[in-house]
Write a protein that binds this DNA or RNA. Structure first.
Lengths: 156, 156
DNA sequence: TGCAATCCTTCGATATTCGAACTAAAATTT
DNA sequence: AAATTTTAGTTCGAATATCGAAGGATTGCA
């Protein structure tokens, strides 16, 4: 039964996230943001087309009111601006300011510098990145089609 | 220039956590717990010696007041009981009730059932589990001894 | 014994997350 | 084309989470 490895992988991923967040705490405070707003900031890639509120909520797996609240934090700090979409005027997109870009870059630098994953060899990094990305891709693909039931099985 | 893989690994870990939390949401509601209290419940292994409050706070990377709040949630739901440690009467340990054990077991079942990692092959699960555990072990070892500075070492 | 350190809790302040209800702008129906 | 429905986003109020400061109890130490 290889469920043991699955359980260990799930648990390790969970702890890795907790430890990483903990190590980022001081940086968040210095940059005058919080864990949640930092996650949002990282989702706004200045190289890409400015994402809409809906797209950002999807990436953070949160709902619309929460996203409005989080974006407000970044707007209040001068890191993001809301712009109306030209084609569909219901939509608003998030655009990084210069300060927003700079803060985001610092966040990424620090995240790489403190991540426990920095101890891995190049081969290990490659393996982890590709395996996890593959799992995510397949998970998102299979959740959009078929298999609607995810009920709690009490067979225990 | 293998920082690309490191960044991808860090990002995949982050998204995996968000997606997993999102997929657990319905189960949390059914079990009358929240994401945070579920994480705490999972840290109390009925096979092990009942952990102290301090030990649990360490495992969740949170502070003492927060842990008191979280344990109160589980106590109020009849899933955990506080007991005084006999040797050091300042300490309190968390002991699972029958309901706590059952809820915890259900949580673990569902977590394995919905995790994107379940799509991985046995070899991939093994690789991810051992690599991430190794990174965590080294990260925690190097943060407790020596090297008080968390400076960015660019020698890589 | 007296003092400092440790473990935990309480309290107040701030942050986060959500559902319900709302506005504005499309898309669809009739 | 007017009416209806759907969609994108916001506002508001409630429940939860997290933290720092301060306090009580117990232990360790001089």
């Amino acid at each position: 039964m290889d469920d043991g490895f699955l359980a260990r992988a799930v648990r390790a991923n969970h702890e890795l996230f907790l430890l990483t967040s903990d190590r980022m705490a001081a940086t968040f405070a210095e940059l005058d943001i919080t864990s949640s707003t930092a996650s949002l900031l990282l989702e706004i890639d200045p190289e890409q087309e400015p994402p809409t509120m809906k797209a950002l909520a999807g990436r953070l797996y949160c709902n619309a009111p929460n996203l409005t609240f989080l974006i407000d934090q970044l707007v209040a700090r001068g890191m993001v601006e809301r712009v109306r979409a030209t084609k569909d005027r219901r939509q608003r997109a998030a655009v990084l300011t210069g300060k927003g870009e700079h803060t985001r870059a610092t966040l990424m630098d620090v995240a790489l510098a403190i991540s426990p994953l920095r101890h891995l060899t190049t081969e290990e990094r490659t393996a982890v990145a590709s395996i996890l990305e593959g799992a995510l891709t397949r998970a998102k693909a299979s959740s959009t089609e078929g298999d609607p039931l995810t009920t709690v099985d009490s067979t225990r």
